[in-house]
Amino acid sequence: MEELFNRLISDPLARTAERILQFLPNLVSAVLLVLAGLAVGLLTKIVLKRIFVVIRLDGLSERVGLKALLAKGGIQEPLSLLLARITGGLVVFVFFLAALNNLEFGIIQNLIERLFIYLPSIFMALVVLVLGYLLGNFLGRAALIAAVNAGVRVSGHVGRGVKLFIYLLSVTMALELLGIGRDTVLLTYSITFAGIVLALAIAFGLGGKDAAREYLEKRLKAQERDDDFHHL
């Protein structure tokens, strides 16, 4: 009876306790690593922010137009704060990964290993997304202003269309970098250019150049009568 009790209850409990005791230092050190990461991350953010203020990074970003570029992308924070936050966040993230690794779970270690192999692709995909976002806003605005100045009635749609097209392109490229949907870029290009060619063919081929122009002017532009004064 005692043997049975030991085999079914006592031994497993002892082994579990032993494992917990073995695991406990790892857990404690993991928690400590996370806490240390938070502290070091915060410290990094504060120190970097001060360094950036001393070297007048925000003034430089304003002079080279980076501030305007970020503002165009909807980011209002100064560059110094942005960089300090990102670096601080990365420090916390690295400590967090070290803490997870310290727990010595096979699956987690495997995941972390794969994550590190995957990291360059993630980074590149993020860069592509950020650039795509900024470029989309820039070109969308350029198209909007040009369309308004040309008197195109659907200028808002033109601007949004260009912006959306660039966004989609950058998302597609990011997915391609992450290895998701490898053929998507090719398909996107094919569909887009086929669409443009088809639209041109309909406008200028089937309808005739003059008819297409007349139609487009009637449809899209204000009724015009030339002014003949000199602006300068």
């Binding site: 008197g151 808002g156 601007g159 204000a222 015009e224 030339d226 002014d227 004064f229």
Partner: peptide
């Protein structure tokens, strides 16, 4: 004499206000 189409000008202004 100089020819001016004021209506079209105001139309362009309105388009700008709508979209810009």
């Amino acid at each position: 004499p100089v020819k001016v189409n004021v209506e079209r000008m105001i139309d362009r202004f309105n388009l700008g206000v709508d979209d810009l």
